[in-house]
Design a protein around this nucleic acid. Sequence first.
DNA 1: AATAAAATATGTTTTTTAACACATTTTTGC
DNA 2: GCAAAAATGTGTTAAAAAACATATTTTATT
Lengths: 232, 232
Amino acid sequence: MKQRVEHFGPMWELSHIWATLTEEERMLLSQQVETVYYHKNEIIHNDGDESQYVWMLLSGKVHIFKEGIGQRQQIIRLLKPYDIFGYRACTVNEPYNSSASAFEDCLVYRLNRATFNELIQSNGSFCYQVMLMMAKDLAFSEIQTVNLTQKHIRGRLAESILMLVKNYGYEEDGSTLAMLLPREDLANMSNMTTSNAIRTLSQFAQEGLVSIDGRRIKILDEKSLEKISRLG
Amino acid sequence: MKQRVEHFGPMWELSHIWATLTEEERMLLSQQVETVYYHKNEIIHNDGDESQYVWMLLSGKVHIFKEGIGQRQQIIRLLKPYDIFGYRACTVNEPYNSSASAFEDCLVYRLNRATFNELIQSNGSFCYQVMLMMAKDLAFSEIQTVNLTQKHIRGRLAESILMLVKNYGYEEDGSTLAMLLPREDLANMSNMTTSNAIRTLSQFAQEGLVSIDGRRIKILDEKSLEKISRLG
DNA sequence: AATAAAATATGTTTTTTAACACATTTTTGC
DNA sequence: GCAAAAATGTGTTAAAAAACATATTTTATT
């Protein structure tokens, strides 16, 4: 298959985080950034690996997950183009504390840790932007902890579906989720077994909240899903 | 009861975070910091409150928690003197996303949000320190999510006990936990009901892993507790 | 297009955890 | 120090979720 060559502008035009950099710093960035291609299902970094790069996703989808007990994995974050990842470990020069894998074929910009840290430490405004991004991630993580521990299966699944809507939006029809996720991944987002994700999604379909056609999920009653998500 | 008056030095001598401030900024800090006393069980801030202050704990103990479904609460973080809290919400000028309550009578320094943000934005090194602190909290939160969702009851309780040891250490005897926590709080840390915390702790005592005398917990076999925590 | 492999659907059983009940002990507030 | 309130201990029942089993459908590979 012929690979589509897409052109992407410089990093600082793609995410406001980098907009704080000076002309000189942008020069350095341009020199250091590499464009890398990852195939579907390829691991980008592993939990425990020495942190070497900060990535910005250009095209495709990536998910960040942690391996838990007995190869059960928890999906921590879902990424879409122009999201930045791997940056937390780089700021503290620690190993990554989660894994990232390409859910689809992906194109990314990657920047080595040394340059990233140089920018953070030399440019206060850039450091501030990185800190704000981290503050968002931290709030999300704490909310997620409570959601995943206290809501019941139906609430957790509804929550995940709504999160997918928020993150990836709909197809042109305005109701089909623009993300075709295997049930196993839905389970790994929602802290449940695959068979419970399958069963519960089928129930949602029977109740007319969604309609399913393989991995294609059409949201029919968002209000009710929100209610289920809210009430546990 | 007469209240013990303790003397505490300036903030920048008590946590390295503030050590990056210039002489001038320290002056500002001195002018703006207030010393506040909270009684046992007093709420310091509530989830959803407009963020007004950043706090540094001077004496006593504080816990940070989130209210979940049906008044079940999840303890997110336990604080000891010189820990800083409430800072995440202040950096993003958002409401607090968790609550803080004084577990014992507490003395704190508190700094208004405006001054805190002024310092962050004017001093890159200070911003960097705050970012590093946030990176630690984020790593902890993500690990915690997986621990609380995937480990079984015994694993979660063992984990919490070890966390208490790490945070508060032992009494002079070198084995009694220097934190007398009601079973309910142990449950709220470990994502379980109070009766399961009581029951499971009793089991640990029967197995000789700990000995219990009311709220006084003596750790007898840390190695085994670690094993239980690790294996789920 | 055919075949193998993987994913989905659905029913059943087992395990885990919460919920409830109640006696006993400890702590708290006057 | 005393009474009331709260916390602890223990047994029992109910609910939730995982584990297991197996058929069917979909997807991937040749």
